[in-house]
Every structure is written in structure tokens, then in C-alpha cells.
Design a protein around this nucleic acid. Structure first.
Lengths: 152, 152
DNA sequence: CAGTATCCGGTCTGATACTG
DNA sequence: CAGTATCAGACCGGATACTG
């Protein structure tokens, strides 16, 4: 077990984890990102899926665009006029591992025994894929052998 | 890129990811868990580190105990009377990969170019460790080769 | 469809004070 | 230390209505 500490080794104001939490760490933002990672892109699709008040959705989408996680693009269906859609940027796509890890945690700890409704598999081999930690050679490293190193 | 979808493949109410978000997905809870994963355990240590109102802290710690992420234990310093401390349960410890992945994302995308203040290394080899996805044999799998499979 | 405008009521925040 | 009590104000959620 981790030894007791009076404080974290990194002050809050320079902690990238803390910044990440400030950026995406609220209920609606996380739920929007969950949907976005599943491919949802349009205002009304988000609204229907989440039953989120339109004002709140508008605000959150705006902030996610500001922070560079979503990009507001135009799409055009034949005959109709162009409409906006919110597409994940590279930064947004990079959140996928975070959500996969959280999904795994949910499966393990808040599922009430229900089987996972989805799983992640390798496209070709169909083998199950799970989040883990690897060393520089791409070999799995056990959590218990992992340490935090402070940069000096 | 992920194709556009009208809705997520999993309804919100049976989605373990959504449940996980409901459980730990708010600013203060995430910041408390960050500190806890760094070893912080005591009420006043949390309070000082986060500058969180005592009432709010009290509420959040209570909820985290309820949901089985923290456990309220007693510690005793010599001469003094026993006092409570909040220690991560197995479920709480299991959140570490989630926070490591989020730290990595923060380093990559919200750091404003600053070098990461901490890094994760293998206890023995001192090699850097990063979050990734592995197949059943512990071999790294590229994100782009990963698919979501729906259980039927 | 994709928003903005408005409004109300509730919860959360943050400050301060008090207790064992 | 580790909380609970109290309180004003900010912010958020939810509903409804209106616009291009």
C-alpha cells in the first residue's frame, strides 16, 4: 500500500492531472465526451441521448471547442443546407484510453454483477484488448511495480 | 476516424462507463481521489491541499466511503487518541490506471509545453511506463486496431 | 436542426463559527 | 484534528419559448 502523505508530491497549480480534471472533470462534459467517442456529433443527437438541457449542452460544447477537444465542422446532406457538427480533434481522440480505462473500472466495480455490455477487441485477431501499462518495448508492466518519479 | 452515430451503442442506464461517471465524475471527487492516490489520507490534509470547504469535503468523503472507494479506518499516534483516516479500498486502488491515463493526456495536451512534473517508471528497470492497450498475452495493441464489440 | 433568451428553484460553494 | 452548523450568493439544471 502507498504510504501516507501529508500532501501530493506535485503542487496543484502545476499538476497536469489537476489541469486535466479542471478541463474535462464534470458530469456533463464527461457524458458528452463518452457519446462523442461513440461517434455522436450533432447537437440534437447529444441532447436526445443525454436529456441534457439545451443551454447547458450549448455551453459545454462551446468550452470543449475552446479547449481544442472538439472541432466545429460543417456537414451537408443532399438538398439540405450545411449544418454544424462537433468532431473530436486529435486531443479529443487521445482521451479514448482514459475512457477505456474508466469503462474497465466500471465493469469491475460498479456493475452490480452485470456482464459488460461491450468489450474491446483487436480488429483482426478478435482477441480481447484491455488497458494496461507497458514499458518502452511495449511489454506489459504490473501496476505494483510502477513508481512515481519526480522530475528535478 | 470513427463514423458518425446518432446514438451510443449502449443505453445510458446500463452503461458501466456512465455509472462510473456518475460515481466519481465531479471536480472535487476527482481532486480528492488524485490526492488519495498520492497517499493523502486525513481530513485536514485533504482540506489544506485542495482548499476545499470543510462541508463539501465531509460530504464527498462520506459518499466515497458509501460507494466503497474509500474506507474509514482509525490510526493512532503515540500518546494521542485515535483518529480517522480515509484509505483507498481495492476498488479505489483500481482507479490508478484511470488517473495515470488522464495524467498522460494532461502531459500531452494541457501542459502548455511544460515538461511533466512526474513520470511513471518501472521499480527495478527504471524504464518509463506508459498507459497502453494489450491483448491477452500482454502484448501492446495499437488503438487504431481496437474495435468495440457489442455483447448479444 | 441548432441554437439563444429567459426564468425559477435547487444545489453547491465558500466563509465563518462552533464542538468534542 | 475532525468534523457539524449556519448562511448568503453563485452557479447549475430543467422547462419553455423564440429565431434563422
Amino acid at each position: 500500500m502507498i504510504p501516507r502523505a501529508q500532501k501530493s508530491p506535485v503542487p496543484l497549480d502545476i499538476c497536469h492531472l489537476a489541469k486535466a480534471i479542471e478541463t474535462i472533470g464534470d458530469r456533463w462534459t464527461l457524458l458528452i465526451l463518452r457519446a462523442a467517442l461513440f461517434g455522436v456529433r450533432r447537437f440534437d443527437d447529444f441532447q436526445k441521448e443525454l436529456s441534457i438541457p439545451r443551454t447547458v449542452l450549448s455551453g459545454r460544447l462551446g468550452k470543449l471547442v475552446e479547449t481544442g477537444i472538439l472541432e466545429k465542422q460543417k456537414y451537408k446532406e443532399d438538398g439540405k443546407r450545411a449544418r454544424p457538427e462537433y468532431v473530436l480533434t486529435e486531443a479529443g481522440e487521445a482521451l479514448r484510453p482514459v475512457f477505456m480505462a474508466l469503462t474497465q473500472w466500471g465493469d469491475d466495480w460498479v456493475s452490480d454483477g452485470a456482464l459488460p455490455p461491450i468489450s474491446f477487441t483487436h480488429a483482426k485477431s478478435r482477441q480481447k484488448v484491455r488497458p494496461a501499462f507497458v514499458d518502452e518495448h511495449g511489454r506489459e508492466t504490473l501496476m505494483k511495480d510502477t513508481r512515481v518519479s519526480l522530475r528535478r
